[in-house]
Design a protein around this nucleic acid. Structure first.
Lengths: 339, 339
DNA sequence: GCCGGTGTTGGAAACGTTTCCAGCACCCCG
DNA sequence: CGGGGTGCTGGAAACGTTTCCAACACCGGC
């Protein structure tokens, strides 16, 4: 908190040269060796640092990218942010975290605020989507990359993963273990992940080579451990208790495991459970959680690369990247599963 | 990605009034009702949004605060960020995430980069500290609040918690359970948390009313589950195995629980374990982890408030806030402990 | 010896905003 | 009817930077 920062003008005066030459000597090209040396010396004496705002205004570029999610704190988003940060930092970009709120309207509102021009691009993870939001995304004044939902609208870049298929894999996995009473624990159906995972489950149990004694579906209020515990209790209550539960994400899966334990069920003997997202939490849980990896960090990295490309070449065409999910088997479905 | 954004000048022309009046009508005071209405209409037609950069340059204020940590992704930092975001967002501030790297030198380098002037203040969590860093913090061109270490230097604001005392509480807790062979699992000693927690342990076991058959200390390479598992194995090996382990954070504690399970030990019967930080991970773990809460979210909120104060009144005196730790007893030390 | 090219420099404009200041109209009071 | 105040408006400067453009010096080739 000392004095005020030195300006380029002051450096110029100290070096006894013009403002233009000073700028060129420090950051540009076309300055003589002598000039560069002289200006550098003056800058060093004054402890000069270029002002990011002044430069941004002149260059029309902020070197900032926004990452917009409903609620930072969800481990999946944190993973993504790490990936994004990892790619962006070496290019001199800073990451600004923004909170969208969990409705489509509040997300649209946030996207609108981007026209404040404080970022060069945005990676957004919409929890819920509607036409207004799509419109807003298409018309945003900066490059936008959407994570989490394949954009049918060709004008919007997206990085998604076929979570439907991932649920299918999980269902086939527990089925192949001989489980015949299969429960599906989903989160709110009006969210993007909720609806696609529901589709995946319905497709899997509707497949021709699939037969089960019983299929049950329960919907939790939220994608959290607490909600999973509550809904899990309902799912496991009653006479015809499932011997396998496929959960829509790791947090719900852990909620179910909690509920199962309270009922005195042993995992994986009495009940097998699968999660989705392959979070660190699941990896170290007891039992280690079988989970469908959606490659969160990798999606983050890819989204960051995309947004960089678009920021450099604003007229580049939008791209849709789709990843394949991967089932990772651990102790919650197979005794002594992979460590 | 459509056309270019409208500027204040364009709004002024459209409304047929001067630039000055336009600015006043939209954001300032001293404009007539008629003027406001007219300008608002023009702005709406053009979809005008004030440009953050232009405004920043003029006002000398960016409405951004940096949050600088070694590695975003650590659950404790995420908690803090939530707290910070929660306080800052309603005041119109954005949060910029920055990575310090884990050495004092790289942290100093980052603090230096703040003189780029792209933020109005910074909340920093230094993992390691040295004189150079302290100097840099004191001379930073924007308000700085340090989390995690009580700053003896009165010129630097800090929000800290007496983690030493927290370790003491944990030690007394397991001691009061009748445990006589006590192990301490710490992280790297040259870090700020590592050294203060070591001090706390040494003080607790050196206290007059303390007696134990055996005291053992093990140091893990890092504050992670994996490192805790490795070091935990060493700690639990050998003849005179501890019947209680106090760990320096939750991740290490979970590593120990893993190791214990592998040895066939039952918790809390054969071994009780305490963590520190009271992370969500520990709260839902099996067994639920007894942990010393350091109030991460609250520390984040307080730091955010401090930095706001300083940003408003740059000459306000630095403040040191110290929180008290709180032991939260759960299943990992007491059968059927609090849910 | 002149001309065109090359290399370097400084002046000035521009990015988009807010705010100081001067000017003007109007009203009220004496 | 004049004077002082009040309320509103527009011109212009300023924030810190980069870059266009013109000016100038110098060099080599004809």
């Amino acid at each position: 908190m000392t004095s005020t920062r030195a300006t380029l003008q002051q450096v110029a005066e100290r070096a006894g040269v013009s403002l233009a030459s000073t700028s060129r000597a420090l950051h540009g090209s076309g300055a003589s060796k002598a000039m560069v040396e002289r200006v550098r010396a003056a800058a060093a004496e004054l402890g000069y640092n270029v002002d990011a705002i002044g430069r941004s205004l002149r260059m029309g570029k902020t070197s900032q990218i926004a990452f917009a999610v409903a609620d930072i704190g969800n481990p999946v988003y944190v993973e993504m942010m790490r990936g994004i940060h990892e790619v962006l930092a070496p290019h001199g970009y800073r990451v600004v975290v923004m909170t969208t709120g969990d409705t489509a309207a509040s997300t649209a509102e946030l996207v609108r605020s981007l026209s404040g021009g404080f970022v060069d691009g945005v990676v957004v993870v919409p929890l819920r989507t509607d036409d207004e939001l799509i419109d807003e995304l298409r018309q945003a004044p900066v490059p936008v990359v959407v994570i989490g939902r394949a954009m049918s609208d060709r004008g919007i870049s997206s990085v998604s993963v076929d979570s439907s298929a991932g649920i299918g894999e999980a269902v086939r996995h527990v089925h192949s273990l001989g489980r015949q009473r299969i429960g599906f624990l989903n989160g709110p159906l009006d969210t993007t992940p909720g609806s696609s995972r529901q589709r995946g489950f319905d497709a899997a149990v509707g497949a021709r080579d699939f037969s089960a004694e019983r299929v049950a579906v329960e919907v939790a209020d939220d994608f959290t451990v607490a909600a999973g515990f509550e809904a899990g209790r309902r799912l496991l209550a009653g006479a015809d208790r499932p011997d396998a539960v496929v959960a829509a994400n790791d947090l719900l899966a852990i909620g179910v495991l909690r509920a199962a334990r309270e009922l005195g069920l042993s995992t994986p003997r009495d009940l097998v459970v699968t999660g989705m997202d392959d979070t660190e939490l699941g990896q170290v849980y007891l039992p280690r959680l079988t989970s469908v990896s959606l490659g969160s960090a990798e999606r983050g990295r890819t989204a960051a690369r995309l947004v960089l490309e678009l920021a450099d070449a604003p007229d580049a065409p939008a791209q849709q990247v789709v990843f394949e999910p991967e089932l990772i088997v651990r102790e919650s479905t197979v005794d002594g599963g992979a460590r």
